[in-house]
């Protein structure tokens, strides 16, 4: 019986203690930054090419999405972005291939505006003649200052690659080949861009009828190009002599 009494008292004590005011765990604000990484959006790198831009365009902007951790602040907060592959083979050179982060033009962009929790950082790439023959890399890393430190470890590095050469779309062999044929080459790519105006080859699937519109148009334009005696290089060929087809 005594055991029962003790048990009941014990339960009452536990219930009483259990009903004591509960102090919740509080978040300790530790502001940090990391590069956004989503399945259908920005991943850990981006490829840029001037190839699909008009020849006279000497600058272009690559937007890099950066997210904050911690509470938003009611003041603008600067942050630090560093190129970590300076001097390495294939590294982009600040001032030559992109506008340096300490350039006055860029300083105002290295800020998380007050109340904001994200930033589309405009990395300005420059069309240096060397890009006609090579691709360069800008390996980015979140730096540390009085406002932010690097956030999620695996997402604090990001790579921007830029060139003026044609870049084969990542989904060419799984998607675009059904509309433009399986072969890919820079002359073919330029012909598509020049004749359709379409450049968003990394933007995902299109409406089927629109994709067929692009396909039919580029095929017709190739027929017309090859039939025009004013085109000395007809039939249209790649640099290695491969005849361009869309079949």
């Amino acid at each position: 019986m005594k055991i029962k009494i003790i048990s009941v008292i014990f339960l009452l004590v536990v219930i009483t203690i259990g009903c004591e005011e509960n102090s919740a765990l509080e978040y300790e604000n530790e502001p940090a930054l990391y590069f956004e990484n989503t399945t259908y959006g920005q991943r850990d790198s981006v490829n840029h090419t001037f190839f699909i831009q008009p020849d006279e365009q000497m600058r272009d902007t690559v937007f890099v999405e950066i997210l904050t951790m911690g509470y938003p602040a009611d003041v603008d907060r600067s942050f630090v972005l560093e190129q970590v592959n300076v001097g390495q083979p294939g590294a982009a050179v600040a001032g030559k291939h992109f506008v340096a982060f300490d350039d006055p033009e860029m300083v105002s962009h290295l800020v998380i505006p007050k109340g904001s929790v994200r930033k589309s950082f405009p990395l300005i790439v420059l069309r240096d003649p060397s890009l006609e023959l090579e691709e360069v890399r800008i390996e980015l890393e979140i730096g540390e200052n009085e406002y932010f430190k690097p956030g999620i470890d695996v997402w604090t590095n990001f790579v921007v690659k830029t060139t003026a050469m044609a870049v084969k779309p990542t989904t060419w062999d799984t998607y675009w080949k059904y509309y433009f044929g399986p072969t890919w080459g820079s002359v073919k790519m330029k012909f598509i861009v020049d004749n359709t105006g379409f450049t968003d080859f990394e933007g995902g699937s299109l409406n089927t009828d629109y994709a067929y519109y692009l396909s039919s148009k580029v095929k017709q334009k190739l027929l017309e190009y090859n039939a025009n005696p004013n085109n000395p290089d007809r039939p249209l060929k790649e640099a290695d002599g491969t005849i361009v087809t869309f079949e």
Binding site: N207, D209, Y210, Y212, K217, L223, A227
Partner: peptide, 19 residues
Amino acid sequence: SIYGMSSNSGMLGYAKPGM
């Protein structure tokens, strides 16, 4: 043509290629 078995906007695309 409009291929009714896939997503489309009911609009006509480019003419079938050929001279």
